[in-house]
């Protein structure tokens, strides 16, 4: 009996302890959230103090509107296409989410560039971004929707479609980015140049208007066709090349039979590293019957350039590639 009372007393003590621990936590939390609020106000003061008499630009993007003053000098980009867009304007971002693959960025920009990696595109590191103290962040609408608020607290942020953008959306994004970095005139010039380049390349390209092309990403277990509404598909359409699959979804997984059914005149294959599904297909008599194979119109293209980079500069490179492949017989 005494033992039990002893036990009970012990438990009561513990109960108060347990409760005490929680209350302590709660107290700390409230304290900290207080700190946080005061922090926010100082941030706000800081930005309002910086206001200069320059005009305010309102930039519309996927998550609303962002007001910008001055010309941002330190820019962080969270997708590859934004690096391309800035590159086209001669701007070098200070932070890029490069999945820790510097060589990918070097290839995209065409030269070694000094920047800080801010982690993966999937989970960019907010701490590193904030430590760079950027004055503009450009984020992707799909991957970074969830951290928009956090990014906004670091710096003015614009959110644009990148991964799922079409060619036209990509050009629109370019204009938006140009407005954000206060380079609208340069961008307009660059865009008309771009259109001219594409038109020029198109005029050099003399192909039958009925000819169909099919760009596709080939992996070891899959063949993913890029349709007329994909980024590269749309660009090729602009150049007068008809996509073999006209549909609203940008991608289509295909097997050999479906490919035989569609039978495009030209195959542009963005190959993965390592083993490829098409290696298997090459042994099949049906593959040899494909128009593209018979006429020697199967080309392999760079996967990074054709499907990952997406921007004004990359588009021109793709178009030049295409001309080189299809232009001269």
């Amino acid at each position: 009996m005494t033992g039990r009372v002893q036990n009970m007393r012990e438990f009561r003590k513990v109960r108060t302890f347990g409760g005490g621990a929680f209350i302590l936590l709660l107290a700390i939390m409230v304290m900290l959230s207080g700190c946080n609020n005061s922090q926010k106000t100082t941030e706000a003061e800081k930005t309002s103090a910086k206001t200069s008499n320059q005009e305010i630009r309102t930039i519309k993007h996927e998550m609303g509107e962002t007001e910008m003053k001055d010309t941002p000098k330190k820019i962080v980009t969270l997708e590859l296409s934004f690096v391309d867009s800035l590159n086209a304007l001669g701007i070098k971002p200070i932070g890029i989410s490069d999945d820790n693959k510097k060589e990918m960025i070097t290839k995209l920009v065409g030269q070694e560039m000094d920047y800080t990696s801010v982690g993966t595109r999937e989970q960019p590191n907010l701490e590193v971004i904030s430590s760079l103290q950027p004055d503009l962040i450009i984020a992707d609408a799909e991957r970074h929707k969830g951290i928009y608020k956090d990014l906004q607290q670091i710096a003015p942020t614009i959110v644009l479609k990148s991964r799922e953008s079409t060619y036209q959306e990509n050009l629109d994004s370019f204009k938006t980015i140009a407005k954000a970095v206060n380079q609208e005139d340069a961008a307009a010039k660059r865009l008309s140049e771009h259109e001219k380049t594409i038109k020029e390349l198109k005029s050099k390209l003399t192909v039958d208007s009925n000819m169909t092309v099919l760009p596709a990403v080939v992996r070891d277990t899959s063949f993913q066709a890029h349709t007329s509404s994909s980024y590269d598909g749309e660009l090729l359409e602009r150049m007068g090349l008809k996509n073999a699959i006209q549909q609203e979804l940008p991608h289509a997984e295909m097997n050999l039979e479906q490919l035989v059914e569609i039978d495009p005149d030209v195959l542009l294959l963005a190959n993965n590293e390592g083993k490829l599904l098409t290696d298997e297909w090459k042994d099949n008599p049906l593959w040899k019957e494909l128009k593209a194979v018979k006429n020697g119109q199967v080309y392999s293209v760079d996967r990074d350039l054709w499907t990952r980079y997406r921007g004004v500069v990359s588009a021109e490179a793709i178009a030049k590639d295409t001309l080189k492949m299809l232009g001269e017989e």
Binding site: L25, L32, L126, E127, S130, S131, D150, Q153, I154
Partner: peptide, 19 residues
């Protein structure tokens, strides 16, 4: 200031959430 920002905006809330 940059450290304060990181602490207040990322680390403290994350630690609280973890706890």
């Amino acid at each position: 200031q940059s450290q304060t920002f990181i602490l207040h905006n990322y680390r403290i809330p994350r630690i609280l959430i973890a706890v």
